[in-house]
Computed example of a mutant assay.
Amino acid sequence: MTKHSTPPGTGRKLTLVVLGLAALITTMLCAFALPSLHSGPHHIPIGVTGPQQTTEGIRANTDADAWDVHVYETTDAVKSAVKDRDIAGGLAVTDHGVDVYTATAGGPSATGALTELGDGLAARYETQAAVHDLVPFTEDDPRGTGLTSALLPMIFGGIFPALILGSVFPGHRGLRTRLTGALLFSVVAGAAVTAVLQFATHSTDGNYWLTALGVTLGTAAMSTTLLGLQALLGMAGFAFGGALMMLLGNPLSGLATGPHWLPTSWAAIGQLLPPGASGSLLRTNAFFDGTGAGLPALVLTAWVVIGVALAFFADRRGKRSAPARPGTATA
């Protein structure tokens, strides 16, 4: 009768796996719960214009933790700043009342909070507040549902290529093929996702090619990073990259609310990760004609470079560790 003995080190490995899974679940809970618990206006930049005494009073009586107030000379200056994404919205106090200028497509939660602020200001002066949405969502998708739902397909568009291409073209010899396939897939996915958003759901109405280019860059940033981590560290690298994108990047992206609705530190981390930068680039290309696209595009380009660099490092390491073929001379 054969006795089955437990291999040495099994207990230690099991302990590490259990602790690692517990840490993963805890991180997932924190990433999803903590930003939601502390969500709200956080240093949202807004503009005000009107009589000097009035604007100074608004600045003095406004919660500095919630609003970052900038004074402008004219109403036109406030409207231009909103369209240029210098501010999230603005208030103009005139003889006729209070005009509230918003950009719902830039952040619906900030729009709601600014509208409430304008209503409160109007009540203080015993007048009415008129809301003017300078950059709304499309008429067919007034709540921006299509835009907010685009992030998960983009994240999975980064996960699936690394997983599937790794199975079809495994090993060191298939690495460059996997990398080429991930980049080609990003181009096709960028065009397809944008086509659905613009022509099927009518959730966006900006320049198609500009929006598609942004989606392509976002998908490439996620797919190449995951592919590079997988090539260098195996399934552990793939799992780490997937957790980074899905469990941290997704809840911190701020795509549904706008980044100013998250605590400042969480929002900053989110915008430095591919999902957050992809969401910001999609928003600015689809509704603001690319105004403010420089930073998210730079972040995504950096992630593409990191992913490609990891893949090439793994490629060189694989060449060094590959055994010499029969019949070849060795130094």
Rank of each mutant, 00 (worst) to 15 (best):
L252M: 15
P170F: 08
Q53Y: 15
L226S: 00
T328Y: 11
L229R: 10
T54W: 07
A231Y: 04
G157M: 02
G234S: 04
G241V: 03
T10D: 04
T138F: 01
L227V: 07
D99V: 08
W209E: 15
E139C: 12
A231K: 01
F169D: 04
T330M: 14
A220P: 03
L197V: 12
G241R: 01
Q53C: 13
Q198H: 06
L300H: 02
V196H: 05
T2E: 09
A239G: 14
T211K: 13
G40L: 05
P51M: 11
A64S: 08
G89E: 11
D141I: 01
N285D: 05
P35S: 15
A64V: 13
S39W: 08
L252P: 03
L121D: 00
L210G: 05
T330A: 09
A286C: 07
D315A: 11
H172I: 07
V98Q: 01
G237R: 00
T111Q: 09
G242E: 00
F288M: 05
A103F: 11
L298A: 15
R59D: 09
P275A: 11
L232T: 14
T49D: 01
T62Q: 08
P51E: 12
P108T: 15
G112E: 06
S203N: 06
G89W: 06
A189D: 09
T148M: 15
G107L: 08
S223A: 11
P153T: 07
W266P: 00
A195E: 10
W261C: 01
A277W: 00
T127I: 04
G144S: 07
F32G: 08
G228C: 05
T75A: 14
T55C: 15
L37M: 14
L233Q: 14
L134F: 09
R320K: 14
P153Y: 11
Q230V: 10
G20V: 07
A66H: 08
A314P: 00
L16H: 09
R173V: 06
P274D: 13
T6C: 10
T104L: 03
T104C: 05
T127H: 02
L244W: 08
S80F: 02
T15V: 12
A239P: 05
F169K: 00
G106N: 09
G307S: 01
E73C: 03
D205G: 10
G276K: 03
